[in-house]
Design a protein around this nucleic acid. Structure first.
Length: 350
DNA sequence: AACTCCTTCAACCGCAGCTGA
DNA sequence: ATCAGCTGCGGTTGAAGGAGT
């Protein structure tokens, strides 16, 4: 016996919404709100729609202050930076962009930003490697297992490590991090949906424990890439970018590989939230201004627009209402926007 | 003009998590 | 502790329109 359907599929209208339906829903929502029950709402207002469909229509289209299209460069930077940091958690990303919906951002990323980024990245790799790069199609074909495959032969040169793109320091980022206790960080990360190990640095082959079968060549390349990360991390332990690589490359023993990440200039696979909490703590306490997009570690209470300790048990980062009512801090100048993204957005201007 | 291919984006679907009984 | 109902999320689909031939 399967799960009971949320509505009577046979008597439910699908497809595009008519202006009349929009008007009904909008008018009801403005007067009454959901009444705490989306499922019952369509019946109340005489719509032959699934409750989920009503919710989606309201959140993505009818809700006040929704912006469509026309993403600014600032928004591009924020989206890219957050995607790099946290992956495809569109609701969290949307919460950083007032008036934007997760659906919009997701569409924008999938149809435009990703292509631009990959295209740009490939170009640069080709330029650097004389055309020996992983193609976009290959990356896509790997179904989220996108790893820039470095040649493993003896002539292999130092890999290309551009700076991790950095957001302009946020207004509150010069504050001392509030999450300086191990458990708070860990609980918040769990709240955000990750799984985290208490184990500290434990070098583990990047492909260990994965439910993914790599070809020998790919596995070799991943191992090789991991070695590069480890070497880089050892050499650059003092930078957040090294810590990022270190995290991603090493602490994947519990990983559920869900996201294709672009980090540190290399497309790589990031375990879903399997950061070492100690490393996170180290990053937070030592290099707060370099935690791209991870400003939630800084303890900003968005709901009250103040810096302070968020109760990790009550913080709700997916709350789109907050994003509308309390605009998040946004970079206000471009002097620190990474050259990479400037070039990516305005090719050939530098 | 007609056709095909590509891009965009609104909407759908299924799953996971939360909550209350 | 378990279960059912509901919500929220992210991946995917498909219609519509634009671009190219």
């Amino acid at each position: 016996m399967g799960r009971a359907p949320c509505c009577d599929k046979a008597n439910v209208k699908k497809g595009p919404w008519s202006p009349e339906e929009d008007a009904k829903l909008k008018s009801y929502m403005e007067q009454h709100g959901t009444g705490g029950n989306w499922i019952a709402l369509p019946q109340k207002i005489g719509l032959k729609r699934c409750g989920k469909s009503c919710r989606l229509r309201w959140l993505n289209y009818l809700r006040p202050n929704i912006k469509h299209g026309g993403f600014s460069e600032e928004e591009d930077n924020i989206i890219c930076s957050l995607y790099i940091s946290i992956g495809s958690r569109w609701s969290v990303i949307a919460a950083q962009l007032p008036g934007r919906t997760d659906n919009d951002i997701k569409n924008y990323w999938n149809t435009r930003l990703k292509k631009k980024l990959l295209g740009k990245h490939r170009k640069e790799q080709q330029a650097r490697r004389g055309g020996n790069s992983t193609s976009v199609k290959q990356l896509e074909a790997n179904k989220g297992i996108a790893v820039s495959i470095a040649p493993v032969d003896s002539s292999y040169q130092q890999p290309y490590w551009p700076e991790i793109p950095l957001l302009t320091p946020l207004p509150y980022s010069n504050q001392a991090p509030c999450f300086n206790d191990h458990d708070s960080i860990r609980r918040l990360l769990i709240k955000l949906g990750g799984r985290f190990s208490d184990d500290d640095y434990q070098p583990t082959p990047i492909h260990d424990g994965l439910n993914i079968q790599f070809s020998d060549a790919t596995a070799t390349a991943i191992t090789s890439t991991q070695q590069i990360y480890e070497d880089q991390a050892k050499n650059m332990r003092s930078s957040a970018s090294a810590a990022c690589m270190n995290n991603v490359a090493i602490n994947n023993n519990q990983a559920q590989f869900a996201h294709t990440q672009y980090c540190g200039g290399v497309d790589l696979v990031q375990g879903q939230g399997s950061f070492s909490s100690t490393l996170v703590e180290e990053m937070v306490s030592s290099y707060p201004q370099r935690l791209d997009g991870l400003e939630f570690f800084y303890g900003v209470d968005m709901a009250n627009d103040k810096v302070g300790l968020i109760d990790p048990n009550s913080a709700s980062w997916g709350d789109t209402n907050n994003s509308l009512v309390y605009p998040p801090p946004v970079a206000s100048n471009y002097q620190d926007i990474p050259q990479y993204f400037q070039e990516f957005r305005y090719p050939g201007t530098q």
